[in-house]
Amino acid sequence: MTLITPAARDALQKWLDHQRALKGASDNTIEAYSRDVAVFLSFMTAHHGEPQGLGAIAKITVSDMRAWMAATRRQDVGARSMARKLSAVKSFYRWLAEREGFEPTAVLATRSPKFSAKLPRPVEAEAAKDLISTVAENAPEDWVGARDSAVITLLYGCGLRISEALSLTRAAVPLGEVLRIEGKGGKERMVPVLPVARQAVAHYVALMPFELGPSDILFRGVRGRPLSPRVVQKSMAQARLQLGLPATATPHALRHSFATHLLNAGGDLRAIQELLGHASLSTTQAYTAVDLGRLLDVYDKTHPKAVAPEK
Protein backbone atom coordinates (compact mmCIF):
# COMPACT_ATOMS: atom_id res chain seq x y z
CA MET A 1 0.00 0.00 0.00
CA THR A 2 3.04 2.29 0.17
CA LEU A 3 2.72 3.24 -3.51
CA ILE A 4 -0.84 4.47 -3.04
CA THR A 5 -1.60 8.05 -2.05
CA PRO A 6 -3.61 8.69 1.13
CA ALA A 7 -6.59 9.88 -0.94
CA ALA A 8 -6.56 6.74 -3.09
CA ARG A 9 -6.13 4.53 -0.03
CA ASP A 10 -9.06 6.25 1.66
CA ALA A 11 -11.23 5.79 -1.44
CA LEU A 12 -10.31 2.12 -1.61
CA GLN A 13 -11.23 1.58 2.04
CA LYS A 14 -14.58 3.32 1.62
CA TRP A 15 -15.34 1.16 -1.41
CA LEU A 16 -14.47 -1.98 0.55
CA ASP A 17 -16.74 -0.83 3.39
CA HIS A 18 -19.49 -0.29 0.82
CA GLN A 19 -18.99 -3.81 -0.58
CA ARG A 20 -19.15 -5.31 2.89
CA ALA A 21 -22.10 -3.32 4.22
CA LEU A 22 -24.37 -2.94 1.21
CA LYS A 23 -23.33 -5.77 -1.09
CA GLY A 24 -22.89 -8.38 1.64
CA ALA A 25 -19.43 -9.41 0.42
CA SER A 26 -17.67 -12.08 2.49
CA ASP A 27 -14.38 -11.49 4.32
CA ASN A 28 -12.51 -13.56 1.74
CA THR A 29 -14.03 -11.52 -1.10
CA ILE A 30 -13.13 -8.25 0.63
CA GLU A 31 -9.55 -9.44 1.10
CA ALA A 32 -9.26 -10.39 -2.57
CA TYR A 33 -10.79 -7.07 -3.69
CA SER A 34 -8.43 -5.11 -1.46
CA ARG A 35 -5.37 -6.94 -2.75
CA ASP A 36 -6.35 -6.77 -6.43
CA VAL A 37 -7.22 -3.06 -6.49
CA ALA A 38 -4.23 -2.08 -4.31
CA VAL A 39 -1.84 -3.89 -6.67
CA PHE A 40 -3.52 -2.19 -9.65
CA LEU A 41 -3.14 1.28 -8.12
CA SER A 42 0.46 0.54 -7.15
CA PHE A 43 1.20 -0.52 -10.72
CA MET A 44 -0.20 2.75 -12.05
CA THR A 45 2.11 4.68 -9.71
CA ALA A 46 5.14 2.78 -11.00
CA HIS A 47 3.88 2.96 -14.59
CA HIS A 48 3.58 6.75 -14.52
CA GLY A 49 6.54 7.32 -12.25
CA GLU A 50 4.61 9.41 -9.72
CA PRO A 51 1.94 8.99 -7.04
CA GLN A 52 -1.53 8.57 -8.45
CA GLY A 53 -4.07 10.67 -6.59
CA LEU A 54 -7.77 10.69 -7.36
CA GLY A 55 -7.27 13.16 -10.19
CA ALA A 56 -4.70 10.97 -11.91
CA ILE A 57 -6.74 7.83 -11.28
CA ALA A 58 -9.68 9.43 -13.08
CA LYS A 59 -7.53 9.89 -16.20
CA ILE A 60 -6.53 6.24 -16.68
CA THR A 61 -6.36 5.49 -20.41
CA VAL A 62 -6.91 2.42 -22.56
CA SER A 63 -3.14 2.26 -23.01
CA ASP A 64 -2.67 2.23 -19.22
CA MET A 65 -5.12 -0.64 -18.89
CA ARG A 66 -3.36 -2.64 -21.58
CA ALA A 67 -0.01 -2.09 -19.87
CA TRP A 68 -1.40 -3.31 -16.53
CA MET A 69 -2.98 -6.39 -18.06
CA ALA A 70 0.17 -7.26 -19.99
CA ALA A 71 2.34 -6.86 -16.88
CA THR A 72 -0.05 -8.98 -14.84
CA ARG A 73 -0.17 -11.77 -17.42
CA ARG A 74 3.64 -11.84 -17.52
CA GLN A 75 3.50 -12.91 -13.87
CA ASP A 76 1.93 -16.21 -14.98
CA VAL A 77 -1.53 -15.08 -13.93
CA GLY A 78 -4.12 -17.25 -15.66
CA ALA A 79 -7.09 -15.97 -17.64
CA ARG A 80 -9.55 -16.78 -14.86
CA SER A 81 -7.52 -14.89 -12.23
CA MET A 82 -6.98 -12.01 -14.65
CA ALA A 83 -10.72 -11.77 -15.20
CA ARG A 84 -11.30 -11.69 -11.43
CA LYS A 85 -8.76 -8.90 -10.94
CA LEU A 86 -10.25 -6.86 -13.78
CA SER A 87 -13.74 -7.32 -12.34
CA ALA A 88 -12.57 -5.93 -8.99
CA VAL A 89 -10.93 -2.93 -10.65
CA LYS A 90 -14.04 -2.21 -12.73
CA SER A 91 -16.28 -2.41 -9.69
CA PHE A 92 -14.03 0.01 -7.80
CA TYR A 93 -13.94 2.45 -10.74
CA ARG A 94 -17.67 2.29 -11.28
CA TRP A 95 -18.22 3.26 -7.63
CA LEU A 96 -15.48 5.92 -7.65
CA ALA A 97 -16.72 7.51 -10.88
CA GLU A 98 -20.17 8.00 -9.37
CA ARG A 99 -18.65 9.69 -6.32
CA GLU A 100 -16.08 11.83 -8.10
CA GLY A 101 -18.04 12.58 -11.28
CA PHE A 102 -15.61 11.37 -13.96
CA GLU A 103 -16.04 9.12 -17.00
CA PRO A 104 -14.66 5.59 -16.37
CA THR A 105 -15.07 4.33 -19.95
CA ALA A 106 -11.39 3.42 -20.45
CA VAL A 107 -11.54 1.05 -17.50
CA LEU A 108 -15.04 -0.31 -17.95
CA ALA A 109 -14.56 -0.95 -21.68
CA THR A 110 -11.52 -3.16 -21.08
CA ARG A 111 -12.36 -6.66 -22.22
CA SER A 112 -11.96 -9.57 -19.89
CA PRO A 113 -9.82 -12.46 -21.17
CA LYS A 114 -11.77 -15.52 -22.26
CA PHE A 115 -11.43 -18.71 -20.29
CA SER A 116 -13.13 -22.07 -20.24
CA ALA A 117 -15.29 -22.60 -17.20
CA LYS A 118 -14.18 -25.61 -15.18
CA LEU A 119 -17.15 -27.89 -14.77
CA PRO A 120 -17.42 -29.55 -11.37
CA ARG A 121 -16.74 -33.26 -11.13
CA PRO A 122 -19.08 -34.82 -8.60
CA VAL A 123 -18.09 -37.92 -6.68
CA GLU A 124 -20.20 -41.00 -7.32
CA ALA A 125 -22.63 -41.92 -4.54
CA GLU A 126 -20.80 -45.14 -3.64
CA ALA A 127 -17.45 -43.34 -3.69
CA ALA A 128 -18.81 -40.71 -1.30
CA LYS A 129 -19.88 -43.43 1.12
CA ASP A 130 -16.46 -45.09 0.82
CA LEU A 131 -14.74 -41.80 1.59
CA ILE A 132 -16.79 -41.34 4.75
CA SER A 133 -15.90 -44.79 6.07
CA THR A 134 -12.25 -44.65 4.95
CA VAL A 135 -11.43 -41.35 6.71
CA ALA A 136 -12.78 -42.88 9.92
CA GLU A 137 -10.65 -46.01 9.52
CA ASN A 138 -7.49 -43.98 8.83
CA ALA A 139 -7.76 -41.80 11.94
CA PRO A 140 -5.29 -42.36 14.80
CA GLU A 141 -8.05 -42.20 17.41
CA ASP A 142 -11.72 -43.17 17.36
CA TRP A 143 -12.93 -39.68 18.17
CA VAL A 144 -10.84 -38.19 15.35
CA GLY A 145 -12.29 -40.72 12.94
CA ALA A 146 -15.79 -39.87 14.13
CA ARG A 147 -15.00 -36.17 13.66
CA ASP A 148 -13.74 -36.51 10.09
CA SER A 149 -16.62 -38.80 9.20
CA ALA A 150 -19.13 -36.32 10.63
CA VAL A 151 -17.67 -33.37 8.74
CA ILE A 152 -17.64 -35.20 5.41
CA THR A 153 -21.16 -36.48 6.01
CA LEU A 154 -22.33 -32.88 6.47
CA LEU A 155 -20.63 -31.83 3.23
CA TYR A 156 -22.20 -34.60 1.22
CA GLY A 157 -25.47 -35.07 3.09
CA CYS A 158 -26.34 -31.38 3.53
CA GLY A 159 -24.39 -29.69 0.72
CA LEU A 160 -22.47 -27.47 3.13
CA ARG A 161 -19.33 -25.57 2.27
CA ILE A 162 -16.42 -26.73 4.41
CA SER A 163 -16.30 -23.30 6.07
CA GLU A 164 -19.97 -23.63 6.99
CA ALA A 165 -19.53 -27.07 8.52
CA LEU A 166 -16.49 -25.98 10.52
CA SER A 167 -18.24 -22.87 11.84
CA LEU A 168 -21.00 -24.85 13.59
CA THR A 169 -21.05 -24.37 17.34
CA ARG A 170 -21.76 -26.78 20.19
CA ALA A 171 -25.20 -25.19 20.54
CA ALA A 172 -26.20 -26.74 17.20
CA VAL A 173 -26.07 -30.24 18.74
CA PRO A 174 -28.16 -32.29 18.86
CA LEU A 175 -28.93 -31.48 15.24
CA GLY A 176 -32.59 -31.12 14.40
CA GLU A 177 -34.30 -31.99 11.16
CA VAL A 178 -33.38 -28.56 9.80
CA LEU A 179 -30.17 -26.60 10.22
CA ARG A 180 -29.87 -22.82 9.92
CA ILE A 181 -26.72 -21.97 7.97
CA GLU A 182 -25.11 -18.58 7.50
CA GLY A 183 -23.44 -18.64 4.11
CA LYS A 184 -21.51 -16.20 1.98
CA GLY A 185 -22.22 -12.55 2.63
CA GLY A 186 -24.09 -13.41 5.81
CA LYS A 187 -27.03 -14.88 3.88
CA GLU A 188 -29.01 -17.42 5.88
CA ARG A 189 -30.66 -20.55 4.56
CA MET A 190 -32.43 -23.56 6.02
CA VAL A 191 -30.95 -26.98 5.19
CA PRO A 192 -32.67 -30.32 5.90
CA VAL A 193 -30.49 -32.72 7.91
CA LEU A 194 -30.63 -36.44 7.12
CA PRO A 195 -30.77 -38.92 10.02
CA VAL A 196 -27.35 -40.28 9.03
CA ALA A 197 -25.85 -36.79 9.43
CA ARG A 198 -27.50 -36.31 12.81
CA GLN A 199 -26.18 -39.67 13.94
CA ALA A 200 -22.64 -38.97 12.68
CA VAL A 201 -22.44 -35.66 14.55
CA ALA A 202 -23.93 -37.16 17.70
CA HIS A 203 -21.38 -39.99 17.58
CA TYR A 204 -18.52 -37.48 17.29
CA VAL A 205 -19.81 -35.42 20.23
CA ALA A 206 -20.10 -38.55 22.36
CA LEU A 207 -16.43 -39.45 21.75
CA MET A 208 -14.89 -35.96 21.71
CA PRO A 209 -12.57 -35.49 24.73
CA PHE A 210 -13.10 -31.73 25.16
CA GLU A 211 -15.62 -29.79 27.23
CA LEU A 212 -17.25 -27.13 25.07
CA GLY A 213 -19.53 -24.23 25.85
CA PRO A 214 -22.60 -23.46 23.71
CA SER A 215 -20.79 -20.80 21.67
CA ASP A 216 -17.61 -22.84 21.14
CA ILE A 217 -16.75 -24.20 17.69
CA LEU A 218 -18.01 -27.79 17.49
CA PHE A 219 -15.28 -29.51 15.48
CA ARG A 220 -11.88 -29.52 17.20
CA GLY A 221 -8.34 -30.47 16.28
CA VAL A 222 -6.32 -32.99 18.29
CA ARG A 223 -5.01 -30.21 20.55
CA GLY A 224 -8.43 -28.79 21.20
CA ARG A 225 -8.31 -25.83 18.87
CA PRO A 226 -10.97 -25.23 16.17
CA LEU A 227 -10.50 -27.68 13.33
CA SER A 228 -8.65 -26.35 10.28
CA PRO A 229 -10.05 -26.97 6.76
CA ARG A 230 -6.58 -28.16 5.82
CA VAL A 231 -6.88 -31.13 8.19
CA VAL A 232 -10.09 -32.25 6.48
CA GLN A 233 -8.51 -31.78 3.06
CA LYS A 234 -5.50 -33.92 4.04
CA SER A 235 -7.74 -36.61 5.46
CA MET A 236 -9.72 -36.78 2.24
CA ALA A 237 -6.56 -36.72 0.13
CA GLN A 238 -5.25 -39.80 1.93
CA ALA A 239 -8.59 -41.58 1.58
CA ARG A 240 -8.97 -40.88 -2.13
CA LEU A 241 -5.48 -42.24 -2.81
CA GLN A 242 -6.42 -45.46 -1.06
CA LEU A 243 -9.68 -45.68 -2.99
CA GLY A 244 -8.11 -44.81 -6.34
CA LEU A 245 -10.24 -41.68 -6.76
CA PRO A 246 -9.07 -38.68 -8.83
CA ALA A 247 -7.53 -35.55 -7.34
CA THR A 248 -10.84 -33.77 -8.02
CA ALA A 249 -12.41 -35.73 -5.14
CA THR A 250 -12.06 -32.86 -2.68
CA PRO A 251 -14.28 -31.68 0.19
CA HIS A 252 -15.87 -29.12 -2.13
CA ALA A 253 -16.59 -31.85 -4.71
CA LEU A 254 -18.90 -33.42 -2.14
CA ARG A 255 -21.03 -30.27 -2.28
CA HIS A 256 -21.22 -30.70 -6.06
CA SER A 257 -22.14 -34.33 -5.51
CA PHE A 258 -24.95 -33.41 -3.10
CA ALA A 259 -26.54 -31.15 -5.72
CA THR A 260 -25.96 -33.46 -8.69
CA HIS A 261 -27.31 -36.57 -6.97
CA LEU A 262 -30.39 -34.69 -5.80
CA LEU A 263 -31.06 -33.51 -9.34
CA ASN A 264 -30.53 -36.97 -10.80
CA ALA A 265 -33.04 -38.32 -8.29
CA GLY A 266 -35.65 -35.90 -9.58
CA GLY A 267 -35.01 -32.93 -7.33
CA ASP A 268 -36.22 -29.50 -8.42
CA LEU A 269 -33.47 -27.19 -9.62
CA ARG A 270 -34.98 -24.19 -7.83
CA ALA A 271 -35.15 -26.10 -4.56
CA ILE A 272 -31.53 -27.21 -4.95
CA GLN A 273 -30.57 -23.59 -5.58
CA GLU A 274 -32.11 -22.66 -2.22
CA LEU A 275 -30.39 -25.55 -0.41
CA LEU A 276 -26.99 -24.52 -1.75
CA GLY A 277 -27.52 -20.83 -1.04
CA HIS A 278 -26.85 -19.75 -4.62
CA ALA A 279 -27.93 -16.27 -5.65
CA SER A 280 -28.51 -17.27 -9.27
CA LEU A 281 -29.82 -20.35 -11.04
CA SER A 282 -26.87 -20.27 -13.44
CA THR A 283 -24.49 -21.04 -10.56
CA THR A 284 -26.61 -24.03 -9.59
CA GLN A 285 -26.59 -25.14 -13.21
CA ALA A 286 -22.79 -25.19 -13.16
CA TYR A 287 -22.72 -27.11 -9.89
CA THR A 288 -24.98 -29.83 -11.21
CA ALA A 289 -23.76 -29.75 -14.84
CA VAL A 290 -27.45 -29.67 -15.73
CA ASP A 291 -28.18 -29.51 -19.45
CA LEU A 292 -29.69 -26.41 -21.02
CA GLY A 293 -32.95 -28.18 -21.79
CA ARG A 294 -33.56 -28.93 -18.12
CA LEU A 295 -32.68 -25.37 -17.17
CA LEU A 296 -35.12 -23.91 -19.72
CA ASP A 297 -37.81 -26.31 -18.56
CA VAL A 298 -37.47 -25.00 -15.00
CA TYR A 299 -37.42 -21.43 -16.31
CA ASP A 300 -40.60 -21.93 -18.33
CA LYS A 301 -42.42 -23.38 -15.34
CA THR A 302 -41.30 -20.91 -12.69
CA HIS A 303 -40.32 -17.54 -14.14
CA PRO A 304 -43.11 -14.94 -13.72
CA LYS A 305 -42.69 -13.65 -17.27
CA ALA A 306 -42.70 -17.14 -18.74
CA VAL A 307 -45.85 -18.32 -17.00
CA ALA A 308 -48.96 -17.18 -18.88
CA PRO A 309 -51.67 -15.67 -16.65
CA GLU A 310 -54.91 -17.59 -16.31
CA LYS A 311 -57.85 -16.18 -18.23
Rank of each mutant, 00 (worst) to 15 (best):
T2E: 14
L3M: 06
L3T: 04
A11M: 12
Q13R: 13
K14M: 06
W15G: 01
H18Y: 13
R20V: 07
A21S: 14
L22D: 13
S26K: 08
F40T: 06
F43I: 07
E50G: 04
G53F: 03
A58R: 00
A58H: 05
I60N: 02
W68I: 05
A71H: 14
R73L: 09
R73N: 11
G78T: 14
M82A: 09
M82T: 08
A83C: 09
A83K: 07
R94C: 09
G101C: 09
A106S: 13
A106V: 02
L108R: 01
R111Y: 05
R111P: 11
F115Y: 12
S116C: 10
A117S: 15
R121W: 11
P122G: 07
V123D: 01
V123W: 00
A125Q: 14
A128L: 07
D130G: 08
D130R: 12
I132Q: 10
S133P: 15
A136L: 00
E137M: 05
A139S: 00
A139N: 02
A139H: 03
E141C: 10
G145Y: 00
A146R: 12
S149G: 12
A150F: 03
V151E: 02
L154T: 01
G157V: 01
L160P: 02
E164M: 06
E164R: 03
E164T: 04
A165V: 13
L166E: 00
L168V: 10
A171R: 13
V173W: 03
V173S: 15
G176N: 03
E182R: 11
G183A: 08
K184R: 09
G186T: 01
P192Q: 07
L194R: 15
V196F: 14
Q199P: 09
A200L: 10
V205K: 02
M208R: 09
M208V: 15
M208T: 12
G213M: 08
P214S: 04
S215R: 15
L218C: 05
F219V: 04
R220M: 11
G221D: 11
G221S: 11
V222S: 15
V222Y: 13
G224N: 05
L227R: 02
P229R: 05
Q233F: 13
K234Q: 08
S235N: 08
S235E: 03
M236H: 03
L243C: 13
L245K: 00
T248M: 04
A253G: 03
L254D: 01
H256L: 02
H261Y: 03
G266S: 02
G267L: 08
A271S: 09
A271P: 05
I272A: 04
E274K: 15
G277A: 04
H278Q: 11
A279K: 10
S280G: 11
S282R: 07
T284M: 00
Q285W: 06
A286R: 14
Y287E: 00
A289Y: 01
D300S: 15
P304E: 05
K305D: 12
A308Q: 05
P309K: 10
P309I: 09
E310F: 11
